Amino acid sequence: MRVLVAGASGFVGSRLCPALAEAGHEVLAMTRHPAKYRGTGEPVRGDVADIGSLRDAFKTVEAAYYLVHSLDSADFQRRDADAARGFARAAAEAGVRRIVYLGGLGDDADSLSEHLASRREVERLLAETGVPVTVLRAGIVIGHGGTSWELTRQLVEHLPAMITPRWVGTRTQPIALADVVRYLAAVLEHPETEARTFDLGGPEVLTYRDMLQRLAAIEGRLLVIVPVPLLSPRLSSYWLSLVTDIDATTGRALIESMGNEVVVRDDAIRRIVEFEPMGYDDAVLQALGERAKQRRAK
């Protein structure tokens, strides 16, 4: 199948392109700078903010992956909505048979954060032109280079003790990056996943406190966590920007989302794409190993 990947150079896309190629698909890696692309697949110019470039990128494409987000912008909701509209319109005009989107977990009955509400809006906008959309919703993805993972790792490695908001007690269901990629690549082989939404998660439900403390134990560090009742997302984001390399805008969006429980409510995907997802500790070791490998290569 001829497949376009929007976000081919990103955290997930850079791992998905090789997996799709290995599965026998012809991969088109959409990028704003094709001459600089060094990953798997044929680089094609495309910018989600430029529908003309999208029309060119979509020529002869059968399926498309949408892995684009704008968390580092204060107006990320508007930017993501505009980009999704343009992508969906160009896909429909080109006769694309399916879009696959990686969204975020979260119960719609909750008051979702701006970040998670934006993910839901993108799901809706991608589908509004009639192209069938397969949505895979994940929570924290554990893998080298992921923003949420980097936030976790840097907090543990930079601070022996931390004062945190009450979100440390929120439940989440982290999943290894390798398993997210496996699900993303596999849905193309299963027609029954078309126009459906699936929850993705690893085998364990953990609080953010559990995640921080288990990472500390794996790295042989002592970590003291003191939750406090009053610490606003804005103040927390400034604190994060001081002790990690996550910018305050992105940090605030992520922290607001940490108030929402992100766990799997329906594991239907496990009965379609059958394998045993990696546990949290193994996912952490894999992420740390990949980071060490890249640091040695520099």
Rank of each mutant, 00 (worst) to 15 (best):
T134V: 08
V135S: 14
V135C: 10
L136H: 12
R137T: 02
R137D: 03
R137H: 00
A138R: 14
G139L: 01
I140M: 09
I140R: 01
V141Q: 04
I142F: 13
I142T: 07
G143E: 01
H144K: 09
H144M: 06
H144N: 14
G145P: 11
G146I: 13
G146Q: 10
T147H: 06
W149E: 04
W149N: 02
E150F: 04
R153V: 13
R153N: 12
R153W: 05
Q154R: 14
Q154P: 06
Q154C: 04
Q154T: 08
L155I: 07
L155H: 13
V156A: 04
V156N: 03
E157V: 04
E157Q: 15
E157K: 03
E157R: 05
L159F: 03
L159Y: 00
L159C: 11
L159Q: 08
P160H: 07
P160E: 03
A161G: 15
M162S: 09
M162Y: 10
I163F: 04
T164C: 13
T164K: 00
P165C: 13
R166H: 00
R166F: 05
W167K: 01
W167C: 12
V168A: 01
G169L: 06
R171Q: 15
Q173C: 07
Q173E: 10
Q173T: 14
P174G: 00
I175C: 13
A176R: 01
A176E: 12
L177I: 02
L177W: 08
D179Y: 15
D179E: 14
V180P: 10
V181Q: 01
V181C: 02
R182L: 06
R182T: 15
Y183T: 07
L184M: 13
L184E: 07
L184P: 08
L184A: 08
A185G: 09
A185Q: 02
A186F: 01
V187H: 04
V187W: 07
L188H: 01
L188W: 00
L188V: 14
H190N: 00
P191L: 02
P191V: 06
P191I: 05
P191R: 02
E192P: 11
E192D: 14
T193F: 10
T193M: 06
T193Q: 03
E194R: 10
E194I: 07
E194L: 10
E194G: 03
E194K: 15
A195R: 15
A195I: 12
A195K: 15
R196A: 06
R196F: 03
T197Y: 05
T197D: 10
T197W: 00
F198N: 03
D199P: 11
D199E: 11
D199V: 11
D199L: 12
D199S: 02
L200S: 04
L200N: 04
L200H: 10
G201F: 11
G202I: 06
G202H: 06
G202N: 11
G202W: 02
P203S: 12
P203M: 11
P203Q: 09
P203D: 12
P203N: 11
V205K: 13
L206S: 06
T207P: 05
T207D: 10
Y208F: 15
Y208D: 03
Y208C: 01
R209Q: 15
D210A: 07
M211L: 14
M211E: 07
L212R: 07
L212H: 08
Q213G: 02
Q213H: 08
L215Q: 12
L215S: 04
L215A: 14
A216Y: 02
A216W: 04
I218C: 01
I218A: 10
I218K: 10
I218G: 00
E219V: 15
E219D: 14
